[in-house]
C-alpha cells in the first residue's frame, strides 16, 4: 500500500497529497499524522490538496477527523489548495467540512497558523495572573 509522506518544516507538518488515495491510504495517513504530531511536538499541520482532482465524502471525513485529532493534540490544521471544481462539487454533494480551516495556498496556510498561534499565546498571557503581577 502507498503512503503519503509527511514533511516537517520548522514548527509545521506539511502533507502534500499527490496520489489518488485509496480509503486505506487515507486511514493510514490519519494514524501517521497523529503519531508525528506527538513525536515532533509541532503546533501546525498543513494539508495541501492542490493535486487532488476529487474530494469525496470519505476524504472529507478524513480531513475533519485529522482536524479534530490535531486539535486534541494542540495543533492547528489548515487544508490548502482546494481546486474550484472540487469546492463546487463538495457544495453540491452537501459536504461542509465543518471545523476545518482552509486557505488558498501553502503560504496563506502558514500565515493562518502563525496568526492562530500568536492569538493563543496572547490569551495565555492574559489568563496568567503571574504575568500581570510580575510587571511592576
Amino acid at each position: 500500500m502507498e503512503r503519503v509522506p509527511i514533511l516537517k518544516i520548522g514548527d509545521i507538518l506539511l502533507v502534500s497529497i499527490q496520489l489518488d488515495m485509496s480509503d486505506q491510504t487515507a486511514v493510514q495517513l490519519q494514524e501517521d499524522l497523529a503519531e508525528r504530531i506527538v513525536a515532533t511536538g509541532c503546533h501546525g499541520v498543513i494539508i495541501d490538496i492542490t493535486a487532488l482532482d476529487i474530494v469525496d465524502s470519505f476524504v472529507g471525513r478524513m480531513l475533519s477527523t485529522i482536524a479534530s485529532i490535531s486539535k486534541v493534540l494542540d495543533a492547528e490544521t489548515v487544508v490548502v489548495g482546494m481546486r474550484p471544481a472540487v469546492a463546487i462539487t463538495l457544495v453540491e454533494l452537501g459536504l461542509s467540512l465543518n471545523g476545518i480551516r482552509t486557505a488558498l495556498n501553502v503560504e496563506r496556510g502558514m500565515e493562518l497558523i502563525a496568526a492562530a498561534r500568536a492569538d493563543e499565546l496572547d490569551h495565555q498571557l492574559d489568563d496568567d495572573p503571574d504575568a500581570e503581577t510580575a510587571t511592576p
Binding site: A87, I88, L90, S96, L97, R101, T102, A103, L104
Partner: peptide
C-alpha cells in the same frame, strides 16, 4: 450562496 460556500471551502 453556493459560490460563497465554495469560496469559503477554498479559504476565501
Amino acid at each position: 450562496l453556493k459560490t460563497v460556500v465554495a469560496a469559503r471551502l477554498m479559504g476565501a
